[in-house]
């Protein structure tokens, strides 16, 4: 899929909260060993943080890099599966905080872990059709997981935001995007429930791997590109292993994928997971580099994008905040404090 007018990224930004819990600490509490294989460290939002505050922080970083008047944004669209309000858009809070209201569309997108890339496709379409000069899209989540569940060993938190606009103003131009979507209930959260349910190994091959392989294969076919044409390949990161494996299956090298697997250092931030990896790749990129982004959302589908970095990245990027700054800060918390901050302790 390509828009009529060329579209690109004008600015981007991320946010990762400062607290970290070690998967060994989760294991200490639930399995008693404290020594799991594939150790990860996961970002934990503070007691005053939620999806809206993280999205606002990411959006402000993106706007600082874009350097545009917020009133020119015609859309502020965030994807999340951890809405602070079940009914009432999070995106209106974000749009208000960055000064984009009232002449903007604002809505929350939902598709498990990939609503942020859905919003990115829609924002590209809006700009590409000429309906808007600029549109913001992004994803943010305080990822939910049932205490003691396998998911808890990988759930993190964070947000990412992108300002899309005309390609000739962009720091990275969109080449094309594809989606591959089926009706696959590998992971879901029922209405009114606090934690999601999942199909264990069913979330792997019939879900994550099949959908990403399909969306990326279609994208490469559509563009006539091979994996070797890319500097970086960023995939959704439910754990640190899956993105490396799907990269290998698709013919990408470890070097193309592994540096952008942020989930080992911050956990899976659901809607923000692939987007934060993508922001890392942009932080690393030089003009001319081509970057692949492939999301995955349970339920199920994958959106794939190809971007080429422009020379504008050099002057634009220093106005933002490198994702590495967020990843390298960390304040360890134990399970007790984590449980308090995440509302996993029921008080009263």
């Amino acid at each position: 899929m390509k828009p009529d007018r060329t579209v690109g990224i004008i600015g981007y930004g991320g946010y990762v909260p400062r607290y970290r819990i070690d998967s060994a600490e989760i294991d200490r509490v639930w399995k008693g060993s404290g020594q799991p294989r594939g150790r990860t460290v996961m970002a934990v939002p503070g007691p005053d943080e939620d999806t809206a505050t993280m999205a606002i922080a990411a959006a402000r970083n993106a706007m600082a890099m874009a350097g545009i008047d917020p009133s020119l944004l015609r859309a502020v669209w965030f994807g999340t599966e951890s809405k602070p309000y079940a009914v009432k858009p999070t995106s209106t809070i974000v749009a208000d905080a960055i000064g984009a209201l009232p002449e903007a569309s604002a809505a929350d997108w939902e598709f498990a872990c990939k609503p942020g890339t859905e919003a990115m496709q829609a924002a590209a379409a809006m700009v590409g059709s000429g309906m808007a000069r600029y549109a913001m899209c992004g994803g943010a989540d305080t990822a939910q997981s049932r205490p003691g569940d396998a998911l808890e060993y990988n759930t993190g938190a964070g947000g990412a935001a992108f300002v899309l606009g005309p390609a000739d103003e962009s720091l990275a131009a969109l080449e094309a995007s594809t989606s591959y979507v089926t009706n696959t209930p590998d992971f879901f959260r029922r209405e009114g429930r606090s934690y999601p349910s999942h199909g264990h190994r069913f979330t792997g091959e019939p879900a994550y791997f099949r959908h990403i392989r399909a969306s990326v294969t279609r994208l490469l076919d559509e563009l006539g590109l091979a994996p070797s044409d890319f500097k970086a390949a960023v995939f959704h990161q439910p754990n640190p292993q899956f993105p490396v494996r799907v990269a290998r299956e698709l013919g990408f090298s470890r070097e193309q994928a592994e540096p952008y697997v942020v989930s080992a250092r911050m956990g899976n931030a659901y809607s923000a997971s692939a987007l934060l990896g993508f922001a890392c790749a942009l932080d690393d990129a030089a003009p001319g580099d081509r970057i692949l982004l492939a999301s995955y959302g349970s339920g199920a589908g994958s959106d794939a994008f190809s971007f080429t970095v422009t020379e504008r990245i050099a002057e634009r990027r220093p106005r933002g905040v490198p994702i590495e700054r967020y990843l390298s800060q960390s304040r360890p918390v134990d399970y007790a404090l984590y449980a308090r901050y995440r509302g996993k302790l029921r008080v009263m």
């Binding site: 503070g46 005053d48 943080e49 939620d50 809206a52 505050t53 606002i56 922080a57 602070p84 309000y85 809070i93 905080a97």
Partner: peptide, 17 residues
Amino acid sequence: MITRRIRQDGDDGPIVY
């Protein structure tokens, strides 16, 4: 300045950012 949750009005009231 950053934006955070300041308080909330019980479980059914608005969240003040």
